[in-house]
Amino acid sequence: MLRVSNLVKYYKRTLAVDGVSFEVANGEIVGLLGPNGAGKTTTLRCITGIVQPTDGVIEIDGINLAEREEEAKRRLAFVPEVPTPYEMLTVLEHLRFIAMAYQTMTRFEERAEALLRRFELFDKRNDLVLSLSKGMKQKLAVACAFIHEASVILLDEPLIGIDPKGIRELKEMIGTARQESKSILISTHMLDTAERLCDRIIILRKGVVIAEGSLEELSRRAKMGEDATLEDVFLSLTEESDRVEGTDIS
């Protein structure tokens, strides 16, 4: 389970995230949505320990990231938005490095083969990463996230650049991970995908959570009908937030 409580992040004097709190329960897929500059990437970077929160608590499976960082990170997998894998490693070496870093070398060959076959990278296992296309690099990044048995999976725009078959495989893997009681947080701009994949949606705007809940709950909040899509709801809620802010200023 992932729990973020009152997360605040300042970059020098710029406030990027302002008191964000949410939970992703076991076996739940949560979508993190928001316009550009909403604070999604900063939130993910805080959860992965890449940046240090100014305030707030992040717990992964009940382990406080600030207090027991290595233990917490061992339970976490992360797929960056535009991954840049190590170009001078082969595909298999890349997976091996990640497995070594997470200290999960048991049955590595078997697990790696299964993952590589699933993402159609098996034939390229001995090729250098520099020879891979953008989509293949994205698939490799996803494979790296699944090579260790993480209980919390963070995906930052995971479907961009992947071919239709790869997208289907990834969606299936995400589904499987949910069945295995893993907590999945997906940050994305692809609203139709989020609508189909996610159990719950969190909408961030200017570093603040402006709405949270299932599509039905969000539709009710946006005062829209049952047939409203996530796109309708998202635009309505973010525009409403803009209007409220405009009123406050005036």
Partner: peptide, 16 residues
Amino acid sequence: FNISHIDFLFPTPISR
């Protein structure tokens, strides 16, 4: 650091 480190090494449990 190179970008690969940011993407793949920083999130790992290897101590900072």
